[in-house]
Amino acid sequence: MADNNQSPRAQDAPLIRIEDMRVHFGPVKAVDGISFDIRRGETLGLVGESGSGKTTVGRAILRALDDIDGKLRFTLDDTSTDLRALRGEKLRAFRKHMQLIFQDPYSSLNPRMTVRDIIAEPLEAGAERLSKSEIDTRVREIAQKCRLNLEHLRRFPHAFSGGQRQRICIARALVSNPEFVVCDESVSALDVSIQADILNLLMDLQDELNTTYLFIAHDLSVVAQISDRVAVMYVGQLMELTDTVTLFERPLHPYTKALFSAIPRLDPQSTFEPVRLAGDIPNPSDPPPGCRFSTRCPFARDRCRSEQPAWREVQPGHLVACHFAEDLADEPRSLSR
């Protein structure tokens, strides 16, 4: 686990620093003021339910979106880049540092391209001028790392199973040797027996290439398995962020606790007692004043309904947005399994 020491050297700066980021689509406040760091070489998990804005966060960092408020900095080799300011050719050149692995390996591969051409595309579309043989070498290298048979490079995607297709997607994302990869529900469409293999592959490639992942998923067990730290989102804002073990063993935010209590345990003799949350997830175009979770929180008080909780560090490395996090620390719902 990385430490929290603030060193002046740029190499120790987080790879990505996000401050008060906002992304609004008309009236919809998809992301509404979030701040966090993504550390070099880590896997940061980002969990949340439908409409929490987790996908928008990933897209904003990758600059797949334009109208972003707040600060968004990417620090590479002592140079800090303002991602929001990148335009045109500069943005295109920067894309080789940041890639995305999608959820659905069936719709994200062009059926009319060979596997070789699919994997080579980021290199050919990038700003670097590479010869065909250089591209071929790099495609073959990454295909091998992704445990793809070199025979497969000449084939078309329809010939492959879901797990093999996702390996092709991973090879395409990693061929430009990016510093940072967003995995948006990248294993959610796969069967359990295949999903484990892809998770292992992602972890092996990270060890080998020192890639940083933002791992977005709704499945908490998958996130727990792969992440060094986990951030919890709810209706456009962050509720809690800390290292994976602390988050699952001693969650502080009532929403995190409710979320964890709702996971069906693999234990037929356990009593399933999910925290009952009143009502539905609020509409992100009309979020409640104060704390976003106050309309459903079992512990909400008057202050929660009027004053937005600060995003604060309650313990070293443990951030939470709840007025009463310390008072609620010993409420039930710590996780032991």
Binding site: S161, G163, Q164, D191, V192, S193, I194, Q195, A196, D197, L199, N200, M203, D219, L220, S221, V222, A224, Q225, I226, S227, T244, V245, F248, F260, I263, L266, L335, R337
Partner: peptide
């Protein structure tokens, strides 16, 4: 047994999963 071993667990730390080899 393979299916149960391949399941990601909440008590992380194990990191590596045991996949069921091969494809369906």
């Amino acid at each position: 047994r393979g299916l149960l071993d391949a399941l990601p667990r909440l008590d992380a730390g194990a990191r590596r999963l045991v996949p069921v080899g091969g494809d369906i």
